[in-house]
Nucleic acid binder design. Structure first.
Length: 367
DNA sequence: AACAAGGGTTTAG
DNA sequence: TCATCTAAACCCTTGTT
């Protein structure tokens, strides 16, 4: 009775597919969507690419130059700059469509969503299957986009089901198929287990999700932390009680790549737009932030951060800029020239709604 | 013991 | 040789209540 049915929808190679829709002559050619950093003509990374390019070795996150080298014998290859506004607009239309299939809805990212269809289907997987097919058909009809759908008893398994067959897949994991589906998979297929964790697990003799499910809990807690260790083991057993529901945004950041590495704070004009953007976004969220921080990515690509907590939450561009500038100045002073910054950014968090809420001690505490 | 603050790492798309 | 951008979860340490 408390068994759920969750549908996960994942739009296939989303940015690149959006570009194919906008320019149909691109289909069949390798399409690489790029984030150009502006440092040099070509510098930047691959955001995503279509399957034609993937088959030729192009991967997300790879330097653009590497991808170009890979495709240089292919005269059809197309390299395009990301156009987030366009993808956002396409995404919003699709998300509106998806909402019509279930009020219990969660948009996870620009190209992913969960639907809880437990009550609509009354627990019947055939009905859920039908909803899955209808979702795919409707997105093709309205936006000419394919997606991969996963159906299972919770978000974790639904997500893993979408990953099982893509692009344009539809995978169902029935409750009695969970162990058979999970156990043989390499542990790196479990969401939350990335390359680092996978290596550490390998060192413990954990190769498959099944191995992890059976592994000693004490040892996992010791190795991966009191929370994370046991959580991963629970996930490996296919257990996930996270509800399908929209979540509040908890932080907001903007970061840029500097034209050239900095060893002191001489780039205020470059970060003002970040403060402007953050202030605007806070306004549209009807939020103020109590924590303002800076992010520095050094020339050896390590991430550093500094932050301070305000007594009174703010959404003011000038205050965000002034305080982050202070943090940058202090940062370079205390690092005594040991630091060269390649990328810099501003991050705000600990949102408070426009309600007045002060963390100052009461005046009466002084008397 | 429980919580806040500050900083780092890892993951994901 | 070259390495984007955004958001979240979690870890650890230190300090306060």
């Amino acid at each position: 009775m408390n068994d759920r049915i969750v549908i996960a929808v994942d739009l296939d190679y989303f940015f690149a597919q959006c570009e194919e829709v906008r320019r149909p002559e691109l289909s069949g050619k390798p399409v690489v969507v790029c984030v150009f950093s502006g440092r040099t003509e070509e510098s930047g990374a691959v955001s995503t690419s279509n399957y034609v390019a993937r088959k030729l070795g192009v991967k997300s996150g790879m330097p653009i130059v590497t991808a170009k080298r890979m495709l240089k014998t292919n005269p059809d290859a197309v390299f395009l700059p990301v156009d987030h506004e366009y993808y956002r607009a396409v995404s919003e239309k699709i998300m509106q469509t998806l909402r019509t299939f279930s009020e219990v809805f969660e948009q996870v990212s620009v190209d992913e969503a969960f639907l809880d269809v437990s009550s609509i289907t009354k627990g019947n997987y055939e009905i859920a299957h039908d909803i899955g097919r209808k979702i795919k058909a409707q997105i093709v009809e309205t936006e000419k986009l394919t997606c991969s759908v996963g159906i299972a008893k919770n978000k974790l398994l639904a997500k893993m089901a979408t990953d099982f067959r893509k692009p344009d897949g539809l995978t169902i994991i029935q409750p009695d198929e969970v162990q058979g589906f999970m156990n043989p998979l390499p542990v790196g297929k479990l969401p939350g287990v990335g390359p680092k964790t996978e290596q550490r697990m390998k060192a413990l003799g954990i190769e498959t999700i099944g191995d992890l499910a059976l592994f000693d809990q004490e040892l996992l807690a010791r190795e991966f932390g009191r929370n994370l260790g046991p959580n991963l083991a629970t996930l490996a057993q296919g257990v996930d009680n996270e509800p399908v529901q929209e979540r509040e945004q908890e932080q907001l950041s903007r970061i840029i790549t500097l034209k050239r590495d900095a060893t002191k704070f001489d780039f205020q004009s470059e970060i003002r737009p970040l403060a402007t953007d953050i202030s605007l976004k806070l306004g549209s969220l009807k939020s103020k932030c109590r924590v303002i921080g800076i992010i520095v990515i050094t020339s050896d690509l390590k991430t550093k951060s500094r932050a301070l907590t305000l007594d009174t939450p703010t959404d003011s561009e000038n205050q965000i800029l002034a305080l982050s500038s202070d943090l940058f100045r202090t940062y370079f002073e205390t690092e005594q020239g040991n630091i060269t910054a390649r990328r810099v950014g501003i991050r705000v968090s600990n949102f408070a709604s426009s309600e007045v809420e002060s963390k100052n001690p009461n005046l009466s505490d002084f008397f």
